[in-house]
Structure formats: structure tokens, C-alpha cells
Design a protein around this nucleic acid. Sequence first.
DNA 1: TATGAATGAGACTTCATTCAT
DNA 2: TATGAATGAAGTCTCATTCAT
Lengths: 191, 191, 191, 191
Amino acid sequence: MSAECSDKRKLILNATEKLVAEDGIHGLSMQKLAKEAGVAAGTIYRYFDDKEHLLEETRYHVSQRTADIIQAGVDDGTTLKEKYSIIWLNIWHFANTKDAVKSHMLFEQLSSKEEGCHFPKKKEIFYKIEQMFDEGKSQGIFKLLDNNVLSSVSLESSAALARKHRNNGFPINDEAITQAIDASWDALINH
Amino acid sequence: MSAECSDKRKLILNATEKLVAEDGIHGLSMQKLAKEAGVAAGTIYRYFDDKEHLLEETRYHVSQRTADIIQAGVDDGTTLKEKYSIIWLNIWHFANTKDAVKSHMLFEQLSSKEEGCHFPKKKEIFYKIEQMFDEGKSQGIFKLLDNNVLSSVSLESSAALARKHRNNGFPINDEAITQAIDASWDALINH
Amino acid sequence: MSAECSDKRKLILNATEKLVAEDGIHGLSMQKLAKEAGVAAGTIYRYFDDKEHLLEETRYHVSQRTADIIQAGVDDGTTLKEKYSIIWLNIWHFANTKDAVKSHMLFEQLSSKEEGCHFPKKKEIFYKIEQMFDEGKSQGIFKLLDNNVLSSVSLESSAALARKHRNNGFPINDEAITQAIDASWDALINH
Amino acid sequence: MSAECSDKRKLILNATEKLVAEDGIHGLSMQKLAKEAGVAAGTIYRYFDDKEHLLEETRYHVSQRTADIIQAGVDDGTTLKEKYSIIWLNIWHFANTKDAVKSHMLFEQLSSKEEGCHFPKKKEIFYKIEQMFDEGKSQGIFKLLDNNVLSSVSLESSAALARKHRNNGFPINDEAITQAIDASWDALINH
DNA sequence: TATGAATGAGACTTCATTCAT
DNA sequence: TATGAATGAAGTCTCATTCAT
């Protein structure tokens, strides 16, 4: 049976996500988590070896969910530019969510500790993005660079801008967003 | 008296930076910090209200230092492209430092908690970057967008790439770096 | 029905002995025990009121087994000295077993808590030893003292020596053993 | 400065001894210990790395105290037999104490874990007993056996008898004690 | 001003025991 | 009768903070 199917397990995982989103990773105590999940503290340890493993698995959950959000509706785009815009905006909207801020920490906090873990790699989770880059390159539209590089010079601008928006609190209107998308598109394509 | 002038104060701040860089924010205990700084635990509380304030101030310190590193040598560049490259590479090299990883957490961890704090804004600290963007715009070379947007679509690619490099561990050679700089430059300029 | 006749009961008792021998009394958790015995945790409580009672009964089990080991082959001895030597060596060999170390703790740990328990007395279990002492006294060879005293000044030396051997780790050869038996025999007999 | 001189340290050590004597090693919780010692729980950890180290050190303390009790007044004896009797009786009286029962556990529990620890060996602590055995051998009175063997066949009878007395609860009068001493003396001497 | 011993709340985790199935 | 998931009290230990010196 899958590792995902237990009721309590999901309850705990969801509660973890919620609390991490609210208080950050430091604020997460197993006691509070138990209360939030509506289970006894000891119950958590039936499903997760320890806090570290719980967090690792939660990170995977968040990864998955983030990937779904970010890649949503990509297939609706007909042109590459449209697909790119959809993804860029997905990231933008998600990154302006309160959850995103804290989820991000889950990533940062955990990603460096256990590299060779038993969860799918980012490439697999974000395969639609990979596909888009591959397509663009094979069509001769995108620069012939590693997908990691392409992503860094283009899509990453979305999250970066959202970060600045959040932290510095400067206002952004729809026009600015369109311009940002266009500008980052310029980094992607051959001129 | 200025907040900066005491000896002990600097001792503590430096020790904080060092320990955070080494063990991350979690590993920082006031006891260890006291030992590293060569002062008594109680002494820390004569200079900082509590741990949170100490960290906030350290973050400012790190900001300042980071700004210096990132903006180093910009004036040596004659053309805008040269200046841009210098900054991009500064970020790249710094972000690949071990210290950067941890310092970065200091930022992330603290930036969301106390928004309207009493420290200089990023704009002031990174004024050379602002100047470069302003110059580019007034020369008609750069797109006429808010500096935050320009930064997001161009320079941020450097840190983003470094992040991927670190976490995913994929190899990057000098040519790829040059290409990344050129690609992100494309996002910046008018075509 | 007798307290001994159930299958599961024996399974549990044996598992308890094994685990106590391996990990000591501290290491024994009801969960591990259930696993080792091949029953559910709850099942244990159908046969034993609680952990304390389980341990008490296990102690009796161990007693019985120990008595068998210690009194093995006594009847083969023709003279009293031979019988004495057999028992002394039985104790010696058993007490140098790893199991003995841990079993011993079972004794020590539990013997003081519930004095007037409902199990056979030592006298009954170690009746062959009692017989030997009685025989020696009636033949005028042994000192006319209470069997408890006789045992203390003679046979107990075996376990004592084994204890020292174990803890201090000093070497003992066969000759030393023979001498120890002879010396303790001197405490037993009239001169 | 000696590891023994702190006030709080002694307080904690004494409280440990007391609680172990009362409830055994299992009953000892750091919380209860703190209360008994009149310090905060955290304070214990200023003086001892962890529970294990605390127990190890307590064991040494008990060793020392036991040695003092057991070897008390030995020098008052003029003949070897007198010295032997004094020690035997010291053990007897001590072993009938309630403290002794539990202290004994401290020994058993801890002695096997860390052999090569940084505390004096038994030989050094019980040097008066060693001296007595050496003296007896050099005078040609005692059997020429290793002191460990001599001790096992003679003095150990005292503790063994006390154990039986305690556990089985059989009565012992002064005459029986004298006889036990004499009998065990027989194991010691040449005939 | 500086010290650092002391505090005690709270962190993570274990485990004897119960109870709905 | 048997199960084993669930419980939650209690365990060890850490650490931000205080305060008498």
C-alpha cells in the first residue's frame, strides 16, 4: 500500500504544512503539531521516524503541490510565449501567497541536508517546464543553453520580483507585470 | 553614542556572523555565542534586547558586507556591459561561497518578521546598482522599467543559477557563465 | 486452567527471557516484546496484568531454569566432594554466561519489590543443594550450621568469583578454579 | 580545583545517592532529582554531561563511602583473625542497611558499561583488604591464592549471607554470625 | 559595566496501557 | 480471543534570559 493512504498520515502532513506556513519552521513543535492535527503527540511517531523525516516528507508534499500550481494550465497555451506567460504568472501569483513565503523556507532549510533522498527529483516534478524549454530550443527560438541556465535567466525573475514586492512593498500594476514577462522573455530567445 | 561604537558590541556581532555562517541560524545559542565572542552570556544583553534584535542587527551587518562584496570594482568597468558583468560575477562568486548559503538564511528568516525596521533600505545600500540601472535607462540602452523589475529580470539570474548549482550540483563552466550573463543582459536592454 | 498451559503465554515468557538476556531490563519494551513473541501488544495484557507481573513471572521461569542448570548432573557424583564440585562448577560456568549477567539483574531488580509472592521458595527449587548440605551434616562431614550459612560460605564463592572475573577481567586458569573449590570446601567441612 | 569542591555538585551527588537508595536506579528521574537536590533541572547539566555520567560519578562516590565503611577500624585489630572479623562484620552490617541494597544496584548497573573509566580501581579503594590478604599470605597463614580468589571464598560470604537474610528473611543470631565468620575463615587459611 | 551560575519552560521522543474492531 | 493504532504522561536534555556579585 502506498505511503500516502493513511488518514492520520495525511492529517499530520497537512497540519505540518499549515503550521510551517504560519510560524515558519522554527515555530513548529511536535506538541503544537499534534494539537493542530487532532492526534496525540505519540501518534506522529507511528507515521514518521522523527521530526526530520516528517519535514523531509512535508517538503516533498509541498514540492508536489507547488509543481501542480506552477504548471497548471500550461497545456492551454498554444504558442511558446503563451505557455511561458502562463507559467510566469502562475509563479507570480503563487509567490505572492503567504504560504509561498514559508513553504519556500521548507525548501531552503531542507534541501541541502539530504541530497540523495528517496524522492523524485525536481526535473521530474517540473517536467512541463523542462518540456517547454526543450521545445523552444528545438524550434530554434530559445538560446541553446542548459535548462538550468534558461530557467535562471527567465522564469526565476518571477519569484524574484514577487520577493521584492513582498519585502520592499513597492507597488506593481498589471502593465509592469506584462513588461517583466516580456523582458525576461528576451533573455530566453535568440535575437 | 552611536549604536556601532562599542568594542564588545562589534565582538558580539562578528561572532554572530561567524557562527551563523558555520552552523546556520538553528545552531546559534547564546552560550556558544558568548564563548565565541569572548564575553559573558549576560553581557550580550547589555547591547541587545534579546536574540531577535541581535539577529536583526546582524542581518543588517551582513547586508552591508554583502553590498560591499557585490558592488566591489564596479567603477573599474568602462562600459555598462562591463559594469553589469562585474556585478553579475560578484554575485555569482559570493553566492557560491559557503558563507553565503547561511547568511542568506539570516535574510530569509528575518526579513518577513519586522518589515518596517529602522535600518537603511536596500536602495541606499545597493546604490551603485541603482546608479547603473539609472544610467542605462538614461542612455536609452536599458528598458524603461522600475529598477526592481530590471534587477529581477537580469541580476537575480546570478543568484538563482548559483542556487541551482549548489542544490542540484550540476556542473557549470566558464563558457556557460558568459552565456548566462549575455542572456540575462538581453532581458535588460532594448532590442 | 493452569497458569502455564497456554501457547501464547509461553511464547511471551520465552521472548521476555530472550530480550532481557540481550538488552537488559531497561531495553525491554512491550512493543519489542510483542514483536519478538509474534503477538500483538494488547495480547500480552490478556495473560499478564502488567509489565511488573510479567517480569515477576519471568523471574520465576529463570529461577527454575537456573536451578536446573546449576543442579545438573549432581546425582552423578559419588562422594560429597564430587557433588559439591559439580555444583560449584555448574554455577561457575553459568555465571560466566552472558545470559547469566542479565538474568541476574532480573533477580536483583525484582526480588526486593514483592517479597511474599506466590511462587515456590528457593528451598524447593534448589532442593538438591539442600539435600547435599543435609547429607554432609548428617555424615558429620559438614559443619552443623543452617544451610543458608553453609551456602554463603561455600557455594556462593563461585558466583562471587565469576562476578569479579567478569567485571575486573582478571584471568583465571583451571588450576585456580580447583584451588577455589578446595578453599571453599574448607569452609564447609569440620577440621 | 578538584572536581568535588562545588556546593551544588555535592548537593546533586548526595541527592542522587539518596534517591537511588530509595527507588532504585529506574526510579531516578532528573526532574525528581532536581527537586530533591533543591536545584533546577538545568543546573544538573552544568555539573554533569548527562545522566549516565552523573550515575558513573555517583557510583564512584558510593564506592568510596562503602570502602570507608567496610574498612573502618581494621587497624584496631591486632591479629589477622581480628582484622578479618572486623571487615566481615562491617560488610555484614552495611549489607543489611537499606541503602546497601540499592547502592549495590548502582554497582551492578554501571560497572559493566565503562570499564576503562577515569576513576580509581577497586584495588586502590579497598587497599586495606588487599593488605590484609597479602599479610596473611606472607605470614604463611593464608592460602597462596590470588586476592580475588581469597576474597571470593571468604569475605564474600558476608554479603551473600546478608542477601539471603534480607530476601528470605530467615533469622540470624549472633552465634550464627560468629560461626559464619569462623567457617569462612577456614576457607582462607592453610590447614 | 561585566560576569556566569542558575533558572525553568519547553523541545523531542518513548512506551506502558487501552479499546474499538 | 486477538489485534495494533492511538494515547498522553513522563522522560532527558537545551537554551534564552535573569540577577546577585
